[in-house]
Design a protein around this nucleic acid. Sequence first.
DNA 1: TCTCACAAGACGCGAGGAAA
DNA 2: TTTCCTCGCGTCTTGTGAGA
Length: 323
Amino acid sequence: MRASRLLTIQMLLQTRGRMSAQALAQLLEVSVRTLYRDVDQLTAAGVPIYAEQGRNGGFQLVEGWKTTLTGFTASESQAVFMSGLAGPATELGLGQQVVDAQLKLMSALPVHQRDGAQRVQARFHLDPADWYREADPVPHLATVAAAVWQDRQLNLRYDSWKAEVQRTVHPLGLVLKAGVWYLVATRDAQPRTYRISNILGAELLDKASARPKRFDLPAYWTESIQRFEAALYQGHAVVQATTQGVKQLRQLSSAVAKAVVAQAPSIQAGETVRLKIPIETLENASYQLLRMAPDVQVLSPVALRRAIAQRLKAIQACYADNL
DNA sequence: TCTCACAAGACGCGAGGAAA
DNA sequence: TTTCCTCGCGTCTTGTGAGA
C-alpha cells in the first residue's frame, strides 16, 4: 500500500512537475501529514525531491532527474503494447508520438520485461474498422482532437440529417466505435454526439471550453447507446428460425443477438425455434428478414408478413421474364 | 480459535518559519 | 497577509505474531 503510494508520488512529480502537498494528499486520498511522511521516506531513499515554500510552492524533483523504474508489472507493460492503437492515433495526428512513446517505454522497461512486450507487439494487432466498409473520411479529426486536448471551444459546420447547420460547441471527448469517430460535446449545456465524418468544417476558437465537473465520458456513451437503441426498436416480431436462421439473426444487431441468446442459448442441428425479436420500422424489418428466408419465417405481426410479401411480389415483377 | 501485546501506519491539531 | 512547508505530539486503526 505504502510502497505503491511512494511510487505514485514519484511518478506524479515526474509527469506534472511541481505539486503542493495538499494536491498530492488529495490525489492519494491521505492526509497532508501522511504525505509529508511519505516524502520523507522518498528523500531518505535517495529520491531528489525538494520543497519550494510560499505561494505557488510545492514539491518538485531535481531538474532532469528521472527514475528508470516505470512501476509496470510484466503484464501491465504487455497490456500497454497490446493496445496497438497506431491506426486511430495516426488519424488523430499522433501516430509518430505513439511510436516514440512505445520506444521510450520499451527503453525504460527492465530487460527481462522487454521480451514479453516485444512478443505482444509482434503477435497482436487491433483493427477497429468493420468488414466490407471503407472507413469514413475524417479530414477535420485533427482539429477536433486539438480542441478536445486543449479544452477550447469549436465552431462546427455540420451535416445533420435535417440540414447543414452551424454550431459552437464545448468539446468533452472523442469516441471510436467500430471504426467510426464521434465527438461528444456540450451545446446549451447539454452533452450531444456528433459523427466526425459529418463535420464539413471545423474552426478552433480561442475561448476556453466549459467542462461539467463530474462528466464521465464512458458512462455518457453507454447511456447514450442505450437511449439510442431504446428509441430505435419500435416493436417486436415473432419468428420461426432454423439453426442457420438463428446464426443469421445473431449477426443482425446486438439487441437482436441478445434476445436470441436469451431465448435459445443452444440449438441442435435440424431443430427450429420460435423467437420474439425487437424490430425497427416495418420497412427495415421486412428488408432484413426477407433475406433470411426461408431459414427465418415471420409469424407475427401480420403487417410485417404483408410487408415481406409485397416486397417479394415487387422482386418477382422485376424478374418475371426469367421465371 | 481466540485473546493480547506490539509495531507501523495514519490522522488531527497546533506552532513556527519562509517566500511571494 | 497569505500560502505552503516543517515538525512534534497524542491518539486511533490495522496487521502480525505469540501464547493459552
